[in-house]
Design a protein around this nucleic acid. Structure first.
Length: 466
RNA sequence: GGUGCCAUCGCCAAGUGGUAAGGCCGCAGCCUGCAAAGCUGCUAUCCCCAGUUCAAAUCUGGGUGGCACCUCCA
């Protein structure tokens, strides 16, 4: 399996430290607001990665954190006159519900910052003892970036000397402008936690290093985790700082492979609060089926930036439709799972740094080929069995096509309307039988008015929502 | 300003040295009472210029145009 390592900037053969075990850590959400499409993209990418790793025979331990200590959370709690926990529980739950609608499987471990404080203390103390960190007079603890000779090597940055000096002048007791807080002291009655360094709150970066140490890292291993992932924006400073902390506090390097997913833009513009164009997942889910969103968001390579727009979503949905039409064609048939050349090719494509475009092309070619065979020979037992195996494989490795095909095409239509449509279809069937095509066509127009298409097949007349 | 990424058919999007995958849209046809669905066929020489090479979308240099990070951010 090949994975692109964004630190070495090249595709590398993936070899875990303790084959077949793979440890994967992904930076998850800060639960102070609803998840937007970018959170969805990240969750989907690493969901796909774990599926492909497993299909390659790896045993994956996947951890994704929940950041539930943060200034934005505290501010929101104040604003809404709620406790921190009320806020974080609400958004954590919403995150889980929404991701599950996208078919994203829950990670094996979901550590929370509030439950990882001890591990953070341990790391900070080690850094203080080894002089990689220092305290300021007001009780803050900073990481001394100048003490780490590998600092900035991860993100390939160069220190800007002028900026450095400038910042030091205006800024307190930091030794270097790049130094970042490990622990921020709190002296008023604000939200704080007791620690060996006094009352305060952890810096943003320390939780990831601590959680990895607590849940995934093993003594004696060169790398704390095999793969570390997250959004492209996290490379600097977040991942750079995580890596520095771990390197200086422990005997291992944070990660062997770094994977960063590209950004989701909306109609060409970055989602941001200031632009007011954040597209929340919950709102997208009101309009589109979760699986349609899954398919669309995964349809472009994970490293490329993704431009979300309705037109593209609709054209990508038609591709998903093709999978479901084939499934519909084979509905109710049983099969024994068999390996096919298609499945091998699909796994091979996905194993090449998650080459989704080639994978989707393979699926399209497969469905076309099966449809053609079935057009020529409606019985074709072998073909049907292989097709069903292929569909099952697609569902397992990509998470596409898991729904009942009839439900898929009829979602969003209530049962009363369905009954009305069925009644009209029956009426039209009679008219057709009597060869009264004028009547049957006028009934079809009535059905069309419901926003559904009908299709006459050998098995009867079916309808789909347009 | 610093660092880095990208530029392939109307749209989305693979391919990264050997003569351009796939999808959407469009056109023609098969099937159909007519449709829909399905199937078949047709549609690009890869931003510009120069270079390396027997051979470049794919490598190098220079343009032009996008974008990202450098502050919280998936």
């Amino acid at each position: 399996m090949q994975l692109y390592d964004s630190v070495q900037k090249t595709k590398r053969e993936f070899i875990p430290q303790e084959e077949p075990k793979v440890s994967l850590y992904v930076c998850g959400p800060t639960v102070y607001d609803d998840a937007h499409l970018g959170h969805a993209k990240s969750a989907l990418v690493f969901d796909l990665l774990t599926r492909v790793l497993k299909a390659n025979g790896f045993e994956v331990i996947y951890a994704r954190n929940i950041t539930d200590i943060d200034d934005k959370i505290i501010n929101k709690a104040k604003e809404q006159n709620k406790t921190i926990k009320e806020i974080t529980d609400f958004y954590t739950n919403a995150y889980h519900v929404e991701m599950s609608k996208l078919g994203v499987k829950r990670p094996d471990i979901e550590p929370k910052a509030t439950e990882s404080l001890e591990a953070m203390f341990e790391l900070i103390e080690k850094l203080l003892l080894s002089d990689h960190a220092y305290k300021t007079s007001n009780g803050d603890v900073y990481f001394d970036t100048s003490s780490d000779c590998d600092y900035l090597k991860l993100s390939h940055r160069v220190q800007d000397e002028s900026q450095k000096l400038q910042r030091i002048e205006s800024f307190s007791e930091k030794r270097n402008s790049a130094d970042f807080a490990l622990w921020k002291s709190v002296h008023d009655d604000g939200i704080s936690f007791e620690s060996p360094f006094g009352k305060g709150r952890p810096g943003w970066h320390i939780e990831c290093s601590a959680m990895i140490e607590k849940h995934l890292a093993k003594k004696g291993n060169k790398f704390a985790v095999d793969i570390h992932g997250g959004g492209a924006d996290l490379l600097f400073p977040h991942h750079e700082n995580e890596a520095a902390q771990t390197r200086c506090a422990t005997s291992h390097v944070l990660a062997n492979y770094w994977m960063h997913n590209g950004f989701v833009n909306i109609d060409g513009e970055k989602m941001s609060k200031s632009l007011g164009n954040s597209f929340f997942l919950k709102d997208a889910l009101k309009i589109y089926d979760g699986e349609v969103l899954r398919f669309y968001l995964l349809s472009t390579h994970y490293r490329a930036n993704f431009n979300f727009n309705e037109e593209d979503l609709l054209s990508s949905k038609k591709r998903l439709d093709k999978i479901y039409r084939l499934k519909k064609r084979l509905f109710g048939l049983s099969h024994k799972n068999e390996k096919t050349a298609f499945q091998e090719q699909l796994l091979k494509a996905l194993s090449d740094d998650l080459n989704i475009s080639e994978s989707l092309a393979l699926i399209d070619e497969m469905t076309t080929e099966i449809n053609e065979k079935l057009d020529n020979d409606a019985k074709a037992k072998e073909t049907k069995s292989q097709a069903l195996s292929n569909l099952a494989y697609i569902e397992e490795i990509l998470g596409f096509g898991g729904q009942n095909p009839y439900d898929y095409f009829q979602q969003g239509i209530d049962s009363k309307t369905k009954d009305e449509i069925d009644t009209l279809i029956a009426k039209r069937g009679e008219a057709k039988k009597a060869k009264d095509f004028a009547l049957s066509d006028s009934i079809r127009d009535e059905i069309l008015a419901y926003g559904v298409n009908i299709m006459d097949t050998a098995q009867g007349t079916f309808w789909e929502k347009i």
